[in-house]
């Protein structure tokens, strides 16, 4: 479980996060949603320790991140898997080498053990024949799946995804969403996804945190988001006619 209390972050005069308090539960797919500029990416990078923050705290299983020693931080980071928006695969390595990278860095496994694990996770993300391709030879959807494979190869306790569906067609986006959901359930990990894809919200949002202007405006789940009367949430989530109709039907059926 990750607990965030009163998180503040500024860049010069710009106050981006203005006191966010929330928690992300183990075994659940937690979504952070909000408009562009609402502070989602900054919040995610604070959670990952890529940005320092001025005030507040982030605790992983009760341990406050900023108070950990460098060694403890390193150990914690070895338990984190991250899927970046642009996949962030290493250009100079093949797909198999990219996936093997965390194992080479953090384990003492033999080459054959690492190879077996790489084969297993690549198969898990339905990429069993892409081992020797370079990232530049893979499509956007394949790159995302490789990034997921790299993120889970070392059995992480926490999985963070920054807009995993951006730039993907709707069908591939659903495949990625389902894959993340399955992996979260299978490994019982804490998954935090930064997204503004409404399909993801409806499909996999077991916990949803809605940010607006650097503040937590609302939190709930994919079920409660249909019923909320929070105007900022409804304006954002049901901005398209299709989703307005879906919501209307849902409310009529459940009234």
């Amino acid at each position: 479980m990750i607990e965030v209390k009163n998180l503040h972050k500024s860049f010069g005069e710009a106050h981006i996060l203005k006191g966010i308090t929330t928690s992300f539960e183990k075994g659940k797919t937690n979504l952070i949603i909000g408009q562009s500029g609402s502070g989602k990416t900054v919040f995610l990078k604070c959670l990952l320790g890529l940005f320092d923050y001025e005030e507040g705290s982030i605790a992983y299983e009760g341990k406050i991140f900023s108070k950990l020693s460098p060694d403890e931080k390193r150990n914690l980071r070895a338990e984190i898997g991250m899927v970046f928006q642009g996949s962030a695969l290493f250009d100079s390595m093949t797909i198999a080498e990219n996936v093997m990278f965390p194992l080479r860095m953090f384990t003492k496994q033999s080459k054959s053990e690492m190879q077996d694990r790489v084969d297993f996770v690549l198969k898990r993300v339905n990429l069993d024949d892409a081992h020797n391709k370079m990232p530049s030879e893979a499509s956007g959807g394949m790159q995302k799946r490789v990034a997921i494979a790299r993120a889970i190869v070392n059995n992480p306790k926490y999985l963070f995804c920054d807009e995993p569906n951006s730039g993907l067609d709707p069908k591939t986006a659903i495949v990625i969403d389902n894959l993340i959901q399955e992996i979260t359930d299978e490994y019982n990990i804490t998954t935090v996804i930064n997204s503004h894809d409404m399909n993801s919200v409806m499909e996999i949002g077991e916990k949803i945190v809605f940010l607006k202007n650097g503040l937590k405006e609302w939190e709930g789940s994919k079920d409660t988001i249909f019923k909320t009367d929070n105007e900022a949430v409804t304006n954002f989530v049901y901005s398209s006619e299709l989703f307005k109709k879906v919501r209307k039907m849902y409310l009529e059926e459940n009234s």
Binding site: I80, M82, G86, L89, D91, P102
Partner: peptide, 17 residues
């Protein structure tokens, strides 16, 4: 610089490298 732009350096940092 390209590794910075494409978040590859962030990926290394997140892994604790």
């Amino acid at each position: 610089g390209t590794m910075r732009v494409t978040e590859q350096i962030d990926a290394l940092e997140v892994m604790g490298i």
